[in-house]
Design a protein around this nucleic acid. Structure first.
Ligand code: DCP
Length: 544
DNA sequence: GCGGATCAC
DNA sequence: TATGGTGATCCGC
């Protein structure tokens, strides 16, 4: 806790420096905070007729004075300071570029290397596939409308406390995802807010996926309401020409079918890869489709005009950082490539370049649950809770529910983390790797409690627990049995000591687990395909 | 390896 | 009066 406080003091100091400024700064400062408070969904479709300026004003006024507001204000200030520092850095680079010969040379060499890297990327551009991104419209709200027809004609949203989504009727009022309910009601007093029913949405989601399987058996669900498909095999199988009209026609057929059979309208993006298909599905919404022609020149032109925020992975912060450098579009990114290579780290830089060229993966493959890296649960209390018995009982309940989730997926964990959010909206996590794999509620609670208690005294509004370094329980047990060479083994499930006699061990483990599962896992063990990153010319800059 | 920050949905 | 839950990734240290 001490360190957290001292960090805050630093920020306070800097804030004071910022407090001495002119009116122009003040206005500027309010403007960015207003944008931040507007939330991440400002550019969602369905708000074309909305006066964003007015909405942001209402949100700002409704938020003012709350602890949440204070926290956001602080975050906004930090971001603005970071952007200002980067701007100074850039000035320095440009100054050196004017006067410093050695630096000029370095800059030129770097530009050459980046260009080589870009050529490499372009030569690998895959235009042989037809990739489709399917995104359900206002998904949770659509499912609710199916259950109750009357909701179709009134502004409605789904969520509790904070909205998960709103139907298009509600969006006309500026109501959108991630907006707190009380502000939404201010914007639209007659708004109906329904509680969440995720299992129901999951059923609908599966129904849609099953329909789409006809077009790609390997389709890859990207979230509860999105799937990627590779349409190429379907087109080939049916001897369909891959011209634009035909592709549009097939997608039209898919959309009509999904709407007719499931009642949910979808929007589709058709393009050469997942990156472009995803962008495309957002271009025309709801209940529509958009095709990015599968030709290098058209793709490059399309990308060059595209605002950076449209690409998956560029959010509010990175967008602002780029705007701070006068970079608005992906074209601007390419034009400023050398500068950006100095400003951002390797991964971020490569991603910016790749996306700006419109290059993306064409692999559509469902890794399913085997790819999951962590699993957890968290809860926000109606009132902040201080250290003590009540808090610890909440942790216990969370651990119980985590144990259930693990058990349902047959997973065990080698690492655990506890998350807290203070009543001032500061988020912290404490993580610990474990000597053994754990999975039952008692062990989870025991480890989590240790982490939580180290942070006392506390006063928090949210508590969470998450398990990571996961492995399949059956495969773990199988490997433990195979490699066990000692006279006695401890049961990997309950840890009791057993004689090293396979029959005894098996019999015992039967109690903990079904042996068939273990055998199956041993047989299938080497199915995983490790993903290897290709080495690029550009790596040289970033290696030390 | 850990914790914070960012991002998506 | 009041701002969610789940999971992933990157970066600095
Ligand atoms: N901050 C968010 C955003 C979304 N969701 C949930 C509710 C949405 O219904 C679902 C799908 O999210 P999308 O971003 O695809 O948005 P919608 O489908 O709701 O609307 P759109 O028509 O704009 O795609 O995910 C959520 O819980 N929290």
């Amino acid at each position: 806790m001490k360190q957290w406080k001292s960090q805050n003091e630093d920020i306070e100091k800097e804030k004071n420096i910022f407090d001495i400024h002119n009116d122009e700064d003040e206005l500027d400062y309010e403007a960015t905070l207003k944008r931040r408070l507007a939330g991440p969904s400002v550019l969602k479709s369905g708000q074309e007729s909305v006066d964003q300026e007015r909405i942001n004003e209402i949100i700002y006024e409704a938020s003012k004075g709350s602890k949440y507001f204070e926290a956001e204000q602080k975050r906004d200030l930090e971001l603005r300071m970071r952007i200002e520092r980067v701007r100074q850095e850039v000035k320095e680079y440009y100054r050196k570029l004017e006067h410093n010969n050695a630096f000029q040379k370095e800059w030129a060499e770097r530009t050459d290397q980046i260009d080589t890297y870009m050529q490499e990327l372009q030569s690998c551009r895959d235009l042989s596939q037809v990739i489709v991104h399917v995104d359900c419209d206002a998904f949770y709200a659509s499912v609710e409308e199916l259950r109750n027809e009357k909701l179709k004609n009134i502004p409605m949203a789904v969520g509790k406390g904070v909205l998960c989504t709103a139907n298009y009727m509600a969006r006309k009022f500026g109501v959108r995802s991630a907006m707190p309910e009380f502000i939404a009601k201010k914007l639209c007093p007659e708004l109906v807010v329904l509680p969440l029913d995720i299992p129901e949405y999951a059923v609908k989601s599966k129904e849609i996926q099953n329909l789409l399987l006809e077009y790609d058996q390997n389709l890859c669900p990207a979230s509860i309401d999105e799937v990627y498909m590779n349409l190429t095999p379907y087109m080939n199988r049916n001897k369909l020409n891959k011209d634009e009209d035909t592709m549009q026609q097939v997608i039209m057929e898919i959309r009509n079918k999904v709407l007719k059979i499931t009642g949910v309208s979808i929007s589709c993006g058709i393009a050469a890869n997942k990156l472009l298909a995803k962008i495309a599905s957002n271009m025309k919404k709801p209940n529509d489709q958009y095709l990015v022609p599968i030709e290098a020149e058209v793709i490059e032109k399309f990308m060059s005009k595209l605002p950076t925020r449209r690409i998956n992975g560029i959010g509010r912060v990175l967008e602002q950082e780029l705007l701070g450098l006068d970079i608005e579009t992906c074209g601007d990114i390419l034009n400023n490539r050398t500068l950006l290579s100095y400003i951002f780290r390797e991964k971020t830089f490569q991603n910016l370049i790749q996306c700006s060229l419109g290059i993306g993966s064409t692999i559509v493959q469902d890794f399913g649950d085997s790819y999951r890296k962590s699993i957890g649960c968290e809860i926000t209390f109606s009132n902040a809770i201080a250290s003590g018995g009540l808090l610890e009982s909440k942790l216990q309940a969370l651990c119980q529910s985590l144990a259930e989730s693990l058990s349902k997926r047959d997973l065990i964990a080698n690492s655990i983390s506890v998350k807290i959010k203070t009543d001032t909206f500061q988020v912290h996590t404490r993580q610990k790797n474990l000597r053994e794999y754990i999975f039952n509620d008692t062990d989870l609670f025991c480890e989590a409690l240790r982490l939580l208690r180290m942070e006392y005294p506390l006063r928090i509004r949210l508590l969470g627990v998450r398990a990571s370094k996961l492995t399949n329980k059956a495969s773990y047990i199988a490997s433990r049995i195979k490699f066990s060479k000692q006279n006695s083994v401890s049961c990997p499930v309950c840890r009791i000591d057993l004689k090293d006699d396979l029959a005894v061990v098996n019999q015992h483990i039967d109690l903990c687990l079904n042996t068939e599962t273990v055998k199956k896992v041993i047989d299938n063990e080497k199915k995983e395909i490790p993903l290897k990153r290709k080495r690029n010319t550009i790596d040289a800059f970033f290696r030390h």
